[in-house]
């Protein structure tokens, strides 16, 4: 393949990534951002800061925690700690995605840059769609999707912020509910490894269980303990099947 062809094809895959904005997950995320707008508008945070936050933090749960820290007048250190704890989950998510994205020649600085665009929606979308892309085009494809999704939501926030003040309660409730329901359906649908089904069930039970036991670290513990148990159980089944066969 000569260089010109190569560049053209890269551009085409970037474009295909951009088209991911017209997908169910992107649509649902945008609806969730409409919900986030109404939260920040009610909290009295200026729209410029909300747009800045959308681009810089990106992960929606982290932003919700940041906003609630700002509202309660928490200090910088306390807010940093709360947001950090909620974002530890980004580490295994990125770590699971990187081996799918890179080739042996992908520079690390590029992966560091692109990791900023990982949040739950982009992760679920990438884990589902990246395997269908030729390996040497995956980074470009993800860049097209991730950058477009962040930019589109920054514009959305800037525009919608002024209109969300009085939403009917049923619409607001349904907007909020879309996010968890979509995550559930999409993770189950896109799972390509049996361990994902087991981990999903263990996490669903572990979340409330650890919230009841140790509310400060619930998500972390549910992930570590639930995930490790799920991995162990699935491995046991796999080995038993191999022995039985």
């Amino acid at each position: 393949m000569d260089r010109e062809d190569d560049e053209q094809s890269s551009l085409a895959w970037f474009g295909k990534g951009m088209c991911g904005i017209f997908s169910l997950p992107a649509f649902i995320l945008m609806l969730s951002f409409v919900g986030f707008c109404s939260l920040t508008a009610q909290a009295g945070i200026p729209v410029q800061q909300v747009v800045f936050m959308t681009g810089m933090v990106w992960a929606l749960p982290a932003k919700v925690i940041l906003v609630s820290s700002m509202m309660s007048g928490a200090g910088l250190a306390a807010a940093f700690l709360a947001v950090s704890l909620s974002s530890v989950r980004l580490m295994p998510m990125v770590a699971a995605l990187v081996p799918e994205l890179r080739t042996s020649r992908t520079p690390t600085w590029l992966l560091l840059f692109l990791s900023h665009f990982v949040a739950i929606t982009a992760w679920v979308f990438a884990m589902e769609n990246v395997p269908k892309v030729p390996r040497e085009r995956r980074v470009v494809f993800f860049a097209g999707f991730g950058i477009t999704l962040v930019a589109a939501n920054m514009i959305l926030v800037a525009v919608v912020y002024h209109f969300v003040a009085d939403f009917p309660p049923i619409a607001a409730g349904c907007l909020f509910f879309l996010t968890p329901v979509y995550f559930l359906a999409s993770i189950w649908h896109s799972a390509r490894h049996p361990v994902v089904y087991v981990a999903l069930l263990f996490g669903l039970v572990g979340g409330p269980l650890f919230y009841w036991l140790l509310p400060e670290f619930d998500i972390l513990l549910a992930g570590l303990v639930g995930g490790t148990l799920a991995w162990f159980v699935e491995r046991l089944w796999r080995h038993r099947k191999e022995v039985g066969a």
């Binding site: 699971a96 049923i170 607001a172 669903l204 991995w231």
Partner: peptide, 26 residues
């Protein structure tokens, strides 16, 4: 990687469960 995948999925699942059981707003 299988273990990392399991932990990442369980973390996201815990977030889902909390959004359903302990929602905010309306």
């Amino acid at each position: 990687l299988n273990w990392v995948r399991a932990v990442a999925t369980a973390l996201v699942a815990a977030v889902i469960a909390k959004l359903i059981l302990y929602p905010t707003g309306v």
